[in-house]
C-alpha cells in the first residue's frame, strides 16, 4: 500500500505537470487525520494524496458535480468497485469517458464505520481494477477473488437470504425498524455516483410524486423508489450505506436488485463498456412473453 501511495503521488504530479489533467480527485487527510476527498490542482500538492485502508468513499460522485467540473479535465483515483460506476456513467452518457483519466488502485479492501472492515469488501467482485487508464499496484498483491458461488454464501448475501427467509410480517417489521430512522437527509443519494439527476423525483413537491415527509409511509416510498431507480445500475460500492447517518444498510436492498439483474439477465452493472441499461432496453428474446 505504501508503494502504491508513492506511485500514486508520482502519477498525479506527472499528469498535472504534463497538463493531461487539471485536477486529480483523490484521497487526502483532514486536519484531524481522517481520510477525505481532495482536489489536487498543482503538481507540488500531489504529495497530499494518500492511499490506505480508510479510503472507503467512492469519489466518482464528484465527476458530475458542477463545482468540480469547473476545475477542468479530471483525473480520478478509484477502487475496482468505484471504477464500475465510471463505466455506468459513460454508458449512460453522463461523462465522456476519454475526458477523464482514471487511476485504478489494486485494492485489498477498506474499512468504514468506525474502522471496521467494510461489509461490501467481504463480497468483493474483483480486487483488480477494470476499464481504467492506469493501474497502480500489482495483481499478485490483490486478495483472491471469490467465485460467484462463494460470494453467494458470504456476508451480505447471507444476510439477504436470512431476511428473505423471514415470514412477510417479520420482514416488514425489519424494514419498518430500519426506515423509521430515515430522516430524509438524502446523504445516500448525494453520495451515490449514479444518483446524478439534477432534480430527483423525491424533490418534486408540486405535486409531490412521493411524500417528501420523513414519515414511515414517505420513507418507504423514498427508499424503495431509490432502489428501483438503481436496479440493474447500482455497482454495490456501498457509498450510500456508508453515508447514511442513521446506519440503515441500504446496500442490502440494492444488492438484492443487483443480484436479481445478475441472476435473471446475466447483467452485472458497470462491467461492460457500452452495455445498454437493463431497465431501458427491450429484447425480443426476453423470458417474459408479455413484452412481445
Amino acid at each position: 500500500m505504501e508503494y502504491q501511495e508513492y506511485q500514486l503521488r508520482e502519477t498525479a504530479a506527472k499528469l498535472l505537470e504534463e497538463e493531461k489533467a487539471n485536477v486529480v480527485i483523490g484521497y487526502g487527510l483532514s486536519k484531524t487525520g481522517k481520510v477525505v476527498p481532495v482536489f489536487i490542482t498543482r503538481p507540488e500538492d500531489a504529495q497530499k494524496l494518500v492511499w490506505n485502508s480508510e479510503c472507503h468513499q467512492n469519489l466518482v460522485v464528484f465527476l458530475t458535480r458542477p463545482e468540480v467540473k469547473r476545475l477542468g479535465k479530471p483525473a480520478i483515483v478509484v477502487k475496482p468497485c468505484d471504477a464500475r460506476a465510471i463505466v455506468v456513467l459513460a454508458n449512460e452518457s453522463q461523462i465522456m469517458r476519454h475526458e477523464v483519466y482514471v487511476i485504478g488502485m489494486v485494492c485489498e479492501g477498506v474499512n468504514e464505520d468506525q474502522g471496521r472492515p467494510s461489509s461490501r469488501c467481504a463480497i468483493c467482485y474483483g480486487h483488480y481494477p477494470q476499464n481504467v487508464d492506469q493501474v497502480i499496484g500489482e495483481a499478485e498483491d490483490a486478495p483472491k477473488d471469490l467465485s460467484k458461488e462463494e460470494r453467494r454464501k458470504t456476508g451480505k448475501y447471507q444476510r439477504i437470504e436470512e431476511i428473505k427467509a423471514l415470514p412477510p410480517d417479520e420482514r416488514l417489521a425489519y424494514w419498518k425498524r430500519e426506515f423509521s430512522r430515515c430522516v430524509r437527509c438524502y446523504a445516500c443519494r448525494q453520495s451515490c455516483p449514479l444518483c446524478y439527476c439534477n432534480r430527483c423525483v423525491a424533490d418534486k413537491n408540486r405535486p409531490a410524486r412521493i411524500p417528501t415527509s420523513a414519515s414511515l409511509q414517505g420513507n418507504f416510498a423514498w427508499n424503495i423508489l431509490r432502489a428501483f431507480h438503481l436496479a440493474g445500475r447500482c455497482v454495490s460500492c456501498g457509498a450510500c450505506s456508508a453515508a447514511c447517518p442513521a446506519g440503515i444498510d441500504l446496500n442490502l436492498i440494492n444488492l438484492t436488485l443487483a443480484n436479481a439483474a445478475e441472476e435473471q439477465f446475466d447483467h452485472l452493472s458497470g462491467t461492460k463498456v457500452g452495455a445498454l441499461p437493463l431497465i431501458g432496453t427491450f429484447s425480443e428474446s426476453d423470458k417474459e412473453d408479455f413484452i412481445r
Binding site: 482536489f39 458535480r65 446523504a187 413537491n205 409531490a208 447517518p245
Partner: peptide, 25 residues
C-alpha cells in the same frame, strides 16, 4: 466546499438548524 456533496446530514443532525418546508400531502 469542494468535497461537500450537498446532502442534509449536517443540518438534520444539527441540534440548532431549524429550517423547514411546508407542503400539502
Amino acid at each position: 466546499a469542494l468535497r461537500c456533496v450537498g446532502c442534509g446530514a449536517c443540518t438534520y443532525l444539527c441540534p440548532t438548524c431549524h429550517c423547514f418546508d411546508i407542503v400539502d400531502e
